[in-house]
Design a binder for these strands. Structure first.
Lengths: 104, 104
DNA sequence: TCAATAGTCCCATATTTCCGAACTATTGAA
DNA sequence: TTCAATAGTTCGGAAATATGGGACTATTGA
């Protein structure tokens, strides 16, 4: 019903990005998106199976609000992609530097 | 009275670092420490003058717990230094990538 | 010994996070 | 059409966390 709201490239803030990625679950979601061809539904990218749907939905909203991912509704599910180009244009090297160290 | 507790290098976590730096005030504190020769008292590194002492103290504790700074008591004040060597050893390139974009 | 200074600790309030439950929207049958 | 199933969102209350005021501690310098 809602068409998702994404910040413009120039409105992506460093604090927002860091805050979004400071949660282990969200870090895993972004990693999963990048690893799996960068287009996953919310549940397919879920960092752990026992997470409540509402919590998962909220994590995706945080990532979206921070400008890290783009979400589009495709049928009954959402397709999520990491906004790599935008993040890299705004903060060159940052995403790579963070994700290089992410995951156990 | 308390001798400050700092995590060992290997106990510094990525999420902890990102979480600590996801607050604009703490980001400014770290920037100030690095800019000013890396050894400032808490109040000298305060990101804005009207912040409550207790809040400022708490921000330093968060940075300390995350392993970002080292605090030693020197007379009546604290001397804080960024643990650059430890952070760089653990997450090469991360700190630089973040701080490059910090603070307009 | 006393006042001043720099921080810390404790507590109450305010904000955020988490999750269950109810709701919406889309698809694919019957 | 209608109905069930699926994927997410939204709402509300409980739990966790941040903020700041005030009292406290420790050190220095009169």
């Amino acid at each position: 019903m809602v068409q998702f709201v994404h910040p413009a490239r120039d409105d992506i803030s460093l604090e927002g990005v860091l805050g979004a990625l400071s949660d282990p679950m969200r870090l895993r979601i972004v990693k999963a998106l990048l690893a799996e061809g960068d287009c996953l539904s919310c549940s397919a990218a879920a960092p752990c199976p026992d997470m409540a749907k509402s919590t998962l939905s909220n994590h995706f909203r945080v990532l979206r609000d921070a400008g890290l991912i783009q979400t589009t509704k495709k049928g009954v599910e959402n397709r999520n992609t990491v906004r790599e180009a935008d993040i890299n244009a705004r903060f060159p090297g940052l995403l790579k530097a963070i994700l290089k160290h992410a995951g156990e």
